Computed example of a mutant assay.
Amino acid sequence: MKLSPLGDKVVLKQLEAEETTASGIVLPGNAQEKPQQAEVIAVGPGGVVDGKEVKMQVSVGDKVIYSKYAGTEVKLGDEEFIVVRQNDIVAIVED
C-alpha cells in the first residue's frame, strides 16, 4: 500500500527515539518521549488551500522537525506514519 497526500499534506515517518541520554543513562521504553523529528515519505502537490497559493517547500527524503501535537497518525501494515499540513513542519534538518 502507498500513501499519496492531497493538497498541502506531507507524510512523515518518525525517527527512532534516543535510548540513552547525553550522560549515558539508558531510558526504558515508557520513559522515552516521542521524537519530533521525522523523515518525509511523500509530499502533496500543493495548490490553492484556503484561498492562498501553497508552494511545497519540503521534498521526499528531507529530515524535518514538526509541531508536537500536529497531524494524524496512520498505521499501514507494520509501519506507522504521521500525516501533517506543511505549515505544521517547523524546520528542515540539514547535516
Rank of each mutant, 00 (worst) to 15 (best):
V48C: 03
G7D: 02
E94N: 08
N30F: 12
I82C: 08
D78L: 15
V40C: 01
G7A: 01
G44W: 00
P5Q: 02
L3F: 14
G7H: 01
S23D: 04
I65Q: 07
V93P: 11
Y66Q: 12
K68P: 09
Q57L: 09
N87D: 10
V83Y: 10
R85Y: 05
Q57H: 05
K13R: 12
E16N: 01
L3Q: 13
V74W: 10
E18N: 07
G24L: 10
Q14F: 06
E18L: 08
V84A: 09
V58P: 08
A91K: 12
I89K: 07
L15Y: 01
V64Y: 07
A22T: 07
M56V: 00
G46I: 00
R85H: 03
E39T: 10
A42D: 12
F81D: 06
E94G: 09
Q32A: 06
A31S: 07
A31M: 05
E79V: 15
L76F: 09
V93E: 14
M1R: 11
A70N: 14
T72L: 15
I41M: 08
L76G: 10
Y69P: 04
D62W: 06
A42Q: 13
P35L: 13
K2H: 13
Q37D: 05
G47Q: 06
G46V: 01
I82P: 06
E18A: 11
V10T: 04
V49I: 03
G71C: 13
P5F: 05
I41T: 02
A22R: 09
S67E: 06
K34S: 04
V58I: 07
K13V: 06
D95S: 03
S67V: 05
A70C: 15
L6S: 07
K55A: 07
G47L: 05
V54H: 04
I89Y: 07
Y69H: 14
E18H: 04
Q14D: 12
V60D: 05
V83F: 08
V11Y: 02
D50Y: 05
K13P: 08
G77W: 14
R85Q: 01
V43H: 00
E39M: 12
A22H: 06
E33G: 04
K52M: 15
I65Y: 01
E39C: 11
I92T: 12
M1P: 13
L27A: 10
G46L: 00
G51C: 13
A70I: 14
K13Q: 15
V84G: 07
L3H: 12
K2W: 10
V54I: 10
G47V: 09
A42Y: 08
Y69T: 14
M56F: 02
Q86H: 12
V83T: 11
V83Q: 11
G44R: 03
A17V: 08
A31I: 03
E16K: 01
K63W: 04
R85I: 00
E53S: 07
E33S: 03
F81P: 06
D62M: 01
V58C: 10
P45F: 02
Y69Q: 14
V11I: 05
K63M: 04
K2T: 15
D78R: 15
P45W: 03
E19G: 14
I65A: 08
E39D: 08
